[in-house]
Simulated assay, not measured.
Amino acid sequence: MIAFTIYNEVRGNRYRTLEEVNEMKKMLLVYVVLIAAFALYVLRFEYTSRVNSSWENRGLRGDLGETYMMITFQSGLEYWKSPLKGFEDAADALGVTVEYRGATRYDAKEQTTVIEQAIARKPAGIAISAIDPKSLIPAINKAVEADIPVILFDSDAPGSQAYSFLGTDNYKAGVTAADKMAELLGREGEVGVLTSPGQQNHEERTKGFRETIQQRYPLMHVVEVADGHGDTLKSRDETLRMMKAHPKLAGIFVTEATGGAGAGEAVQNAGNAQKLHIITFDTNKATLDLIKNGTISATIAQGTWNMGYWSLQYLFHLHHHLTVPAPSSSGENAPLPVTVDTGISVVTRSNVDDYYAK
């Protein structure tokens, strides 16, 4: 009887021990679930805090999945290398991806097609140099209405919905060219202009040059404004024609680099028959070489790297809603400066070596 009682007590203790173990397992499972839930909460809080934290704390960094596009015309021109380099440098700084596209020819319809194709890709933003200030407006506006920020650089399209234009103050550049031409000619003589009619930036350069000659230098006269078609051979032929039509022609202002090379070739072909001072635009190697050998007297260097770099910075800020509207030059609030002058400098034989690519 005593043995039976002891056995039952031992077996009872055993049953209670198994029940306690099962209870402990249940409690352990509850603890694991609670700890996991807490860990998930902490991780989510950390992620949310990081996403919502200020850009100042985590830096201006995007995502490689963010693609920004640069679109130009005559895509093979050496001129575009510098703004594209600025665009790419900004992409490296911001941690985003960039692509370059362009019309292969001097053709507004082709550039419109390129913009339409870009819109279909839905990039984070597009930087455009507009070949024609009017015909591209519908395509530019279509991009903005599709919630794709657009910044214009180098060549503007006034009246479009693009947020900002970054480029040379082309009228002021024309003024600078006129002052330099007056210096070269001793403030007297006949001069001509070779340009690309219909393109906003070239028209402004021409206007600044002509009005400055007229207003400041009474002994100087602009005898002709001709179309170089943005082509070396046509610009050469037009320069030769102008030299023949105006035997006293002493200077020519060429509003773009390709035409400048053509004008330089014309002067070389003419030999010493007629001395002609040439002032052109931009700093491609051909132009710099012609300055170095004395064929071209000067060129106007633009802040092309700045155009590309700040275009992408502006697009990035628009895409991430980091802008703060402020009064613009039009008097209305705008998320970015409406117009930004990226600056110019005058390159002559005395400083030409500073402008060769290092």
Rank of each mutant, 00 (worst) to 15 (best):
Y7F: 15
K244D: 12
E265D: 14
T195Q: 04
H202S: 12
E183A: 12
S350M: 11
G59H: 12
F73Q: 06
S196H: 15
E183F: 10
L312N: 04
E20Q: 13
G208E: 02
V223M: 02
H221D: 15
K358C: 08
N272R: 11
G343W: 02
P337M: 03
G230V: 05
I6Y: 13
E19I: 12
V30S: 05
I71L: 03
M1G: 14
A173D: 03
G294P: 03
G331N: 01
I291W: 06
D179W: 09
E78M: 02
A157P: 11
N351P: 06
E183N: 08
L194T: 06
N201L: 10
S330Q: 12
W305F: 15
G208W: 02
I115R: 08
W80K: 00
S155C: 13
M242G: 01
H246G: 02
E256W: 07
S311H: 04
F45A: 13
K248T: 13
T304D: 11
S196T: 15
V144W: 05
E99K: 10
R11I: 13
V144L: 07
G343E: 03
I252D: 00
T287N: 11
E256P: 01
V340H: 04
S235M: 00
P123M: 00
A357W: 10
G308L: 00
Y7D: 12
D341C: 05
G294Q: 02
E203C: 04
G198M: 04
T255N: 06
D169H: 07
Y314E: 04
I278Q: 00
G230C: 07
R187T: 15
S345V: 13
P337V: 07
M70D: 03
N306K: 15
V222S: 06
G260A: 02
G192M: 00
R101A: 09
F87P: 08
A90P: 11
Y163H: 10
R44Y: 14
I291F: 01
T258V: 14
I296Q: 00
E78N: 07
A298Q: 04
V51E: 11
I344T: 15
F316C: 04
Q74S: 13
E188F: 12
A270E: 10
M181G: 03
P149A: 07
E203W: 10
G208Y: 02
H221L: 11
R61D: 10
V175M: 11
D63P: 09
I278D: 01
E211P: 09
I71W: 01
K275M: 09
F45S: 15
N333W: 05
P335N: 07
T97D: 06
G228E: 02
A37K: 00
W55K: 09
N22E: 14
T17A: 15
S49V: 05
H321Y: 13
S196N: 15
K122T: 11
W305Y: 15
T48M: 11
L40C: 08
G174R: 01
K26G: 12
P133N: 08
A39H: 05
G86I: 00
D227F: 01
M220L: 04
